[in-house]
C-alpha cells in the first residue's frame, strides 16, 4: 500500500522561476490496484510520480510504502521496491551495453551486487527465456548493444527490466507517449499482461483519455499540484473518454477565464 500525506514541493523557491509543483497531495493506493493519473501539461502529474520514485525529496509531507516511511530514502534505495518505465525510451536502458548486460543490472535490482560475473550461464539462460516471452525475436540478439534497437523494443525491454524482480510498485511515466501507435499498443498490451500476471500495484501517468478509460481501476486527475478528481469502482467503470474530455475542457476554460477575471477585478477594485 502506498500512502502519500500532504506532499508539498516547490521548485526554485524564491526566484522568478518559482513553481509550486505539488501543493498538498493526499493519496492512498491499495495493493494490487492499477491507478491512472491524468492531467494537463505542467499539472504536476509527472512530479507526483517522481516524488514517489525519489528523483527529489519533497519539501514536506510523508511517503509510506507498505508501512515503510520512504520520504527521505534516496532514489537508488527506493528502487529496491519500485520499478520504473520512463517516457523517453532512451532513459530506461544503457545504450552502449548489451541487452544481456542491461538485463543483468535489472535482475540485481533490490539485491546486493557482488564481485561475481554478471553474465553467468544460469543468468543467460533466464535472460533468454524471459526475453523470448516478449515475442520480439530479441532473444537471439542478447549480445547486441541496446542502442541498436528501436524505441519500441527498448521500451518493451525497460518494462521487462522494471518487472524483473516483482516490484512492490510499478511507476509508468507516459511510457508509450513517444512511440508510434502500433508499438504503443503492443507495449501497453505487455504492460497489462505483466500487471495482471504478477498482480502488481501500478501507478501510470498518461495524458490520453482513452488509455485512462481503458486501463486500470482508478483515475486521478491532477491540476495545479492538487488532486481535483478521484474516480474508482463503479464510477470509474461508467466513465467514458468523452466525460473526461469535458472535465478537461472545464479546466481549460477556467484557466482561460481566471486571468481575465482577475484583470476585471483589478480594474474595478484596485
Amino acid at each position: 500500500m502506498l500512502e502519500l500525506k500532504c506532499l508539498h514541493k516547490t521548485f526554485n523557491p524564491g526566484t522568478p522561476d518559482e513553481v509550486k509543483a505539488l501543493s498538498g497531495v493526499n493519496l492512498t493506493i491499495a495493493d494490487g490496484s492499477f491507478t491512472v493519473i491524468l492531467g494537463t501539461n505542467g499539472s504536476g502529474k509527472s512530479t507526483l510520480l517522481n516524488a514517489v520514485a525519489g528523483t527529489f525529496i519533497v519539501d514536506s509531507g510523508s511517503i509510506t510504502l507498505n508501512g515503510k516511511d520512504i520520504t527521505f530514502m534516496p532514489e537508488h534505495g527506493r528502487a529496491a521496491y519500485i520499478g520504473r518505465v520512463f517516457q523517453n525510451p532512451f532513459s530506461g536502458t544503457a545504450p552502449d551495453m548489451t541487452i544481456a548486460e542491461n538485463l543483468a543490472i535489472a535482475s540485481m535490482r533490490g539485491k546486493k551486487r557482488r564481485f561475481l560475473s554478471a553474465l553467468s550461464r544460469g543468468a543467460m539462460r533466464e535472460f533468454y527465456e524471459r526475453v523470448k516471452a516478449l515475442n520480439m525475436g530479441l532473444e537471439e540478439r542478447l549480445d547486441n548493444n541496446i542502442g541498436s534497437l528501436s524505441g519500441g523494443q527498448r521500451q518493451a525491454l525497460t518494462l521487462l527490466m522494471a518487472c524483473w524482480n516483482r516490484p512492490d510498485l510499478l511507476l509508468l511515466d507516459e511510457h508509450t507517449a513517444a512511440l508510434d501507435p502500433k508499438t504503443a499498443a503492443k507495449v501497453l498490451e505487455l504492460t497489462k499482461n505483466y500487471i495482471e500476471k504478477d498482480r502488481l500495484t501500478a501507478f501510470m501517468v498518461t495524458h490520453s483519455m482513452q488509455q485512462a478509460v481503458n486501463l486500470g481501476e482508478r483515475i486521478i486527475m491532477v491540476y495545479k499540484g492538487k488532486i481535483i478528481h478521484d474516480f474508482s469502482g463503479a464510477e470509474k467503470k461508467s466513465l467514458k473518454a468523452k466525460d473526461l474530455y469535458e472535465l478537461f475542457e472545464d479546466i481549460k476554460r477556467r484557466e482561460l477565464i481566471d486571468p481575465a477575471t482577475s484583470e476585471i477585478l483589478k480594474a474595478n477594485y484596485v
Binding site: A53, P74, E75, H76, G77, A79, A80, G83, R84, F86, F90, S91, G92, T93, A94, P95, D96, M97, E101, N102, A104, I105, A106, M108, R109, G110, R113, R114, F115, L116, S117, A118, L119, T158, M161, A162
Partner: peptide, 28 residues
C-alpha cells in the same frame, strides 16, 4: 574481469545512462 561483474556492470551503466542505473537501484 571487474567490469564484467555485477558491480562492474552497474558502474558502466552509471556512466552510460545514470537515470536507468538509479532507477534499477544502483547507487550512482
Amino acid at each position: 574481469w571487474f567490469l564484467g561483474t555485477e558491480l562492474g556492470a552497474a558502474m558502466r551503466a552509471t556512466g552510460n545512462c545514470p537515470q536507468m542505473a538509479a532507477a534499477l537501484g544502483v547507487n550512482t
